[in-house]
Write a protein that binds this DNA or RNA. Structure first.
Lengths: 214, 214
DNA sequence: GTCTATATAAGGATAGAC
DNA sequence: GTCTATCCTTATATAGAC
């Protein structure tokens, strides 16, 4: 699982200047094509040919940048995780209770637009592979770890500031994360649309009861 | 997605008498071989050849019983869902609060044995496909619907009997189901083992706070 | 860096014997 | 019902020209 790049580490502007994350233009095009192919065909139907179809380049050019399909998939997961995380870990306001709602709304939007639905569908499709793919497992372990930490830190801040009761922040964070993940997962893999709304309501009332000082 | 059986509907004991669920012996052998193949190779690595390897029969014999791989997969999901449900919907005791804990422990065991882990891994692997497979989606929609109904009914019974406060049973059921599903999903697709324990503790304390009459 | 052409393997599915 | 043999398609991956 290398990045297919021949030792280019410096930051100076070459023809293929790396973007922030560390991908050349060509590589990013491949990542985007992979994303579109996953959307259309799902993980089970993903092939190098299908990715090439979404790209306006040939299959062989993909193998110039990535050693194998596994290599490409590993890179794609890193790419997707990077973008996913930076979309969640936004700036925080001054009310921790509002920050919690913001995180929840980001991860489990009440009315997701088409793009949000698609991103989550692709993500969950990949995550399903983590059951049998060790590399994927590690990535998702790290991702959940980060999300849990984010939630935990907001709760801890609320406690420190005196806005919340002195609860076990870790326990609350794991509860919230599991509930969000479960509802997200349910939304992507079933047609029980009303379930998400019920969970959102229940989660908010849980947090009010658990955190609010009386 | 037929069952590959030529109109046999009656119950009399033929040479290939159907078992309870409606599968002949040969079909059940194929289902078990499919299960083993999924365990070993995951959904993405599942092939008719691999199933035949787990069976002591040839690929062609599988096609005698099922028209296509899709057909077989549909049958397998029905088979697995059937067994999964009947393992959850066990007899209920007289204390609704204990019944809730029993359902939770069934779905999210604190210390799952190897078989429980495997069943959940296979299940989650299949569920991941529901993102892009309509037939799978319908099956998992139905399954979640049943689980939610089971939980809701226990809560409603508790309310009727005066053991619980008069909460919104549907809301509570959806919350519990999402939290269980999220933790189950996390356990199968990441290595955050302590997360499940935290969720179990938090879920119990949530139910105590939400349901207990004061 | 990208292309065309191709090697090689594996997969789904069928034919026809028993 | 099950087998062997086979067809056809698709997949991953590479070779070599430009």
């Amino acid at each position: 699982m290398t990045d297919g790049c021949d030792g280019e580490v410096t930051d100076d502007a070459t023809d293929d200047a790396k973007a922030d994350g560390g991908w050349t233009d060509a590589e990013e095009e491949i990542m985007l094509a992979t994303y579109r192919a996953l959307l259309e065909h799902g993980y089970a139907g993903l092939s190098i040919s299908r990715i090439a179809d979404e790209l306006d380049k040939s299959k062989a050019s993909i193998y110039y940048h990535y050693d194998s399909k596994d290599d490409l998939l590993g890179a794609f997961l890193a790419y997707a995780a990077d973008r996913f995380q930076s979309s969640i870990l936004t700036e925080s306001g001054d009310d921790p209770r509002e920050d919690l709602e913001r995180v929840i709304e980001k991860l489990l939007p009440l009315r997701p637009d088409e793009e949000e639905r698609q991103i989550q569908a692709v993500f969950l499709g990949l995550r399903g592979q983590a059951v049998t793919n060790a590399t994927f497992r590690e990535q998702f372990t790290e991702l959940d770890e980060q999300l849990a930490a984010t939630i935990r830190e907001v709760v801890e801040r609320g406690i420190d500031e005196g806005a919340f009761r002195d609860v076990d922040a870790d326990r609350v964070a794991e509860h919230v994360l599991a509930t969000i993940n479960g509802a997200m997962y349910g939304r992507a893999t079933s047609d029980r649309e009303t379930a998400v709304a019920a969970v959102r309501v229940s989660l908010s009332s849980y947090l009010d009861a658990e955190l609010r000082r009386s």
